[in-house]
Amino acid sequence: MTTPLKLAILETDVLRPALKPTYHSYGQMFTALLDRVEFRGDIGVFPVIDGIYPESIDDYDAYLITGSQHDAFAEHDWIVRLRAFCKDIYQAGKPLIGICFGHQLLAHALGGKAGRAERGWGLGVMTYDFHDDALASLPGFVDQPEPVSLLISHRDQVLTLPPGAETLLTNDFCRYAAYHIPGRVLCFQGHPEFTIDYQQDLLKYRENDISDEQMQAVEASLAGDHQGERIGRWMRDFLDSSHR
């Protein structure tokens, strides 16, 4: 009988004080998402932003890097350490999932590049199409080749993919909205773990970053579909396939 997969969630941010009583932490958001999609593994949460890591890379079978308000390409000590740790995980052959900041950090750590997006903030619900090349040979964890809608909150993007990476999802705003390195890495710019309520509360902190007209468009987008659980199932199946 196969032992349950052990997944380490590496937390790269702390929620704003006003939001913590309701939403708790990013680690808890991901744990709740994975529970909803019936992920059967064991989960540990490590606030790497505070320097807390697993004792050994081999303590866990796979790793997930969360989103963050920080820049994945910055030279802060904790971010430099995290990039090095992720390179070690990759070299050890363990699967990696990156979300938003994690998506950018893995690209940057593995030989690509992340940076400021020329088009500024992306917020609300955004829809992505499958990249033409991805449609030719969809990986096994993908359910169907239909557009994907996700909640987003970012002003940085992946600018260059790392070697061996293939684009999964794209649109005019974000060229590399999702990518994977087959069997090794799965990354999304959007936030499958977010809820509409959390996004609405988070928008209050963006009022000075975008115009009133942009804010109205973002708020209107929240009435659209958010397929976080669909992506949660992709994540689950990606991890399951790596643990067989």
Rank of each mutant, 00 (worst) to 15 (best):
E229D: 14
F73R: 10
D59W: 11
G232M: 10
A74M: 02
R175Q: 12
E219I: 11
G41C: 06
V48W: 06
R16I: 04
D133A: 15
A220K: 13
E118W: 02
E207N: 10
G190K: 11
V148N: 03
D129M: 10
Q216F: 03
Y23A: 00
L34R: 05
R236I: 00
L186A: 05
E219V: 08
D132S: 14
L19Q: 11
A178I: 04
Y63P: 01
L159T: 09
R81P: 00
Q199W: 01
S25G: 07
T2R: 15
G112R: 10
W121F: 11
S211G: 08
R244M: 08
H154N: 12
G183P: 02
E166G: 04
W234R: 07
E193F: 06
D58H: 15
A92W: 09
W78C: 02
V218P: 01
G228F: 05
V45D: 02
A165N: 04
E38L: 14
R244A: 11
Y179C: 05
S149N: 05
T22I: 10
A178P: 01
S149H: 07
R233M: 11
R233W: 08
G224F: 02
G190D: 09
G115M: 13
A223M: 13
C174M: 03
K113T: 03
D172E: 14
D61A: 09
N208C: 06
E11F: 04
R16C: 01
D201G: 05
Y179R: 08
L96M: 15
Q157L: 11
T195K: 01
R81T: 06
A117E: 01
Y205V: 00
V148F: 07
L7Q: 05
I89F: 11
L161R: 09
A114N: 09
M126F: 13
A165P: 05
R119V: 02
Y23S: 03
A114E: 05
L151M: 12
G44S: 15
K6W: 07
F194W: 05
G102V: 04
Q144D: 10
P182T: 11
T2A: 11
V142M: 15
W121C: 04
D77R: 12
E207Q: 14
M1N: 10
A136Y: 04
L5Q: 13
W121G: 03
R175N: 02
A72L: 09
G190W: 10
E75N: 13
L186C: 05
R36C: 04
D129V: 06
E219K: 15
Y198H: 08
F39I: 08
C100W: 04
D35P: 00
I57T: 08
L202Q: 09
D59E: 14
H108F: 09
D237T: 12
F238G: 07
H191P: 01
K87V: 08
Y26A: 00
Q227V: 03
P4Q: 12
A72Q: 06
D237N: 15
Y176E: 04
D212Q: 14
L15Y: 07
H191S: 02
H131F: 03
V37S: 12
V14L: 14
T167I: 07
P95C: 06
L33T: 03
A117L: 08
G190P: 08
L138I: 07
A18H: 09
L10G: 02
P162L: 14
V158S: 08
